[in-house]
Amino acid sequence: MIAQRFALGLMTLFAASLLIFGGTEILPGDLASAILQNNATPESLAAMRKELGLDRPAATRYAEWLSGAAHGDFGHSLANKREVANEIAPRLKNTIFLALYAAVIAVPLAVGLGLLAAINQGGVFDRVVNVVTLMTISVPEYFLAYLLIKYLSVQFGFFPSLANVTPNTPILDRMTLTFLPMVTLVLVITAHMMRMTRASVLSVMASPYIEMALLKGLPKWRIVVRHAFPNALAPIISVVALNLAYLIVGVVIVEAVFVYPGLGQLMVDAVSKHDVPVVQACGLIFAAAFILLNMGADILAIMTNPRLRHAR
């Protein structure tokens, strides 16, 4: 069962790599014309194609690219001819740092608040939280980010509005510099995660075996901890994984707002410069993170399901 899911994850990753390669290489208007844009003459196009190796069959190039990628070799950037891998490495670290920073704070916060809201279902806390989180998930990340900048940074100067870290920035400064981007991400994913946690706990709490536990005279804490939580665990895990996957998208925009030198920024730049090798590499990394998270969630859900753990 778990092995099956693992194999499916690998297959999906493979399919995604095909899609990324195919999407950028086979679509009409190939790489060469994309680079040359309006300056393309038939001669320069042909020369460029040769230089890029586009005259060889796509399947060969895909195989080379994939085996290179597996070894951490993503080829050379078209914009500055540097090795893509070297370009990516420090930025990937930055992005992972920011994402982890946000996740470490958001996950316990969201699960805790979600449980609280579920226990007080229909109460004042629950209703207020429902409206507030609904608003938070509706608004774009940059709106929250600029609000934070305007009030916490510009007006009162609590935190810096630019997250211009360098590889040598010490960890504490790094945490201060990335404080506002972190808060923005936390706000967005906490709201999502909290709502979904609340919903999954509520659906468990509505099941007849919880009513039965109540009719057995068990105290509320025991019903929640012993009877509801183990059954809500699987849905909560998948909620968390789903939202961490969502972080990937959030990160791109938040990095742009705070001019944070992460992978998202790099990818956005590469897209506007049509720097395909960089776009491919970033896309593959984002897709891999997304697929791994989803796979991890499914595997954990399988492991926590009593029906699957104890077969008939």
């Binding site: 099941s207 007849p208 075996y209 009513e211 039965m212 536990a213 012993r226 009877h227 183990p230 059954n231 009593p306 029906r307």
Partner: peptide, 8 residues
């Protein structure tokens, strides 16, 4: 079937 907790 519904009144027994599936994970205990």
């Amino acid at each position: 079937a519904a009144s027994f907790n599936p994970s205990i």
